[in-house]
């Protein structure tokens, strides 16, 4: 089932949650809606599900306009951040609910039992039929919620921050499991997240949203390697920011990145901490001088905070442990920084 979203706009009072959003999702794709909180990603998902209605614009499910369809008619599976399980029902009854409430072609009891058992096996919860949601862990509850959503054989699966309420370890396990499950059932799925790692790891394509607008759509590699805007670049990871002005050439980092030539506009060069190299001698490239003010080891990497001698701005560098050991730098030491890969954006006027 492919989904087409055309020029969607949604306002809550004076707050514009979505501005002219258009998006295509191919059948069987797993798409992440990624953005900071309040950017409109959840609103978009809820409009797709029919729980919320747009002010203008249209949604087509398989070429068919969904505007007139209620949430129940759309055949979308919706998974909520806080599970939204029916706490007075057993796991079995939760999953069976969507089948039991059917008015037409309701399956027989044996058929319901067979399908629920199959779904519980799919989400690795066989034998949990008679438990109540209160007796399950967060990860198990979310898998019940997923089985419940899948029970109605939805055309599209929508997940609202599905791992948001889980602790870090379970989160990681569950999202990998979700990816494998998706590869198995190939159901068109859209999930909302504010976690960059999660979006990049799980999805086929990432839709990055900011302030109700789509900033960029692309595969995880595309958005990470070729961010379309400074926002995307900053949002996808830590960045160091170097102001540059072409005509003056005061900062000699321009040679390291692709820069639009001959512009008079002020430019901004971005480099990720792991793309910043430190050395004791200036080397052939023009480099910046900075003092090390803080060194912190985080797992396999070493994070170094430096203060530039010329502007006093803080620069962050990330070294591997081996590199750190061979260099053996210390707090207070003066070193040269070489951003070896930078992205340059024109600075917005003002």
């Amino acid at each position: 089932m492919n989904i087409e979203v055309r020029h969607l706009t949604k306002k809550f009072g004076s707050f514009t949650a979505l501005k002219d959003v258009s998006l295509d999702v191919a059948p069987g794709e797993l798409v992440a809606l990624l953005g900071p909180s309040g950017c409109g990603k959840t609103t978009l998902l809820r409009i797709l599900s029919g729980l919320e209605f747009p002010d203008s614009g249209s949604i087509l499910f398989g070429g068919e306009d969904a505007a007139a369809q209620t949430v129940g008619d759309r055949r979308v599976g919706f998974v909520f951040q806080h599970y939204a399980l029916f706490r007075h029902m057993t796991v079995f009854e939760n999953v069976a609910f969507g089948l039991r409430v059917r008015r037409e072609n309701r399956p027989s009891n044996e058929e319901i039992r067979r399908r629920v058992e199959a779904l519980l096996a799919l989400v690795k919860l066989d034998g949990f039929d008679d438990r109540y949601p209160a007796q399950l862990s967060g990860g198990q509850r979310q898998r019940v919620a997923l089985a419940r959503a899948l029970a109605v054989e939805p055309r599209v699966l929508l997940l609202d921050e599905p791992f948001g309420a889980l602790d870090a370890k379970v989160r990681k396990e569950l999202r990998r499991w979700l990816r494998r499950l998706h590869d198995e059932i190939r159901l068109t799925s859209i999930f909302v997240t504010h976690d960059v790692e999660e979006a990049l790891e799980v999805s086929d394509r990432v839709v990055i949203i900011n302030n109700g607008r789509i900033e960029q759509i692309g595969t995880p590699d595309e958005v990470y390697d070729h961010p379309a805007s400074p926002f995307v670049y900053r949002f996808l990871g830590n960045v160091n920011l170097f102001h540059a002005r072409m005509d003056q050439g005061r900062i000699a980092i321009a040679g390291a990145g692709e820069s639009p030539e001959g512009t008079e506009h002020p430019l901004t060069a971005y480099a990720r901490p792991h793309e910043v190299e430190l050395s004791r001698d200036p080397g052939p490239d023009p480099a910046l001088e900075a003092d090390i003010i803080h060194i912190q080891t985080v797992g396999p990497t070493v994070r170094i905070e430096l203060r530039r001698c010329d502007t006093g701005e803080i620069v962050e560098a990330e070294l591997t442990r081996e590199r750190y050991r061979t260099m053996a730098c210390k707090t207070g030491e003066r070193v040269h920084i070489h951003p070896n890969r930078v992205r340059i954006f024109e600075e917005p006027k003002n």
Partner: peptide, 24 residues
């Protein structure tokens, strides 16, 4: 959420009230 979940699973308003809200 809970009522919305029931609605998205195809339950009518009456079913949501009698099977979800009242039992809770």
């Amino acid at each position: 959420d809970v009522e919305q979940a029931a609605a998205s699973l195809g339950a009518t308003r009456l079913q949501v009230i009698t099977q979800i809200v009242l039992p809770m």
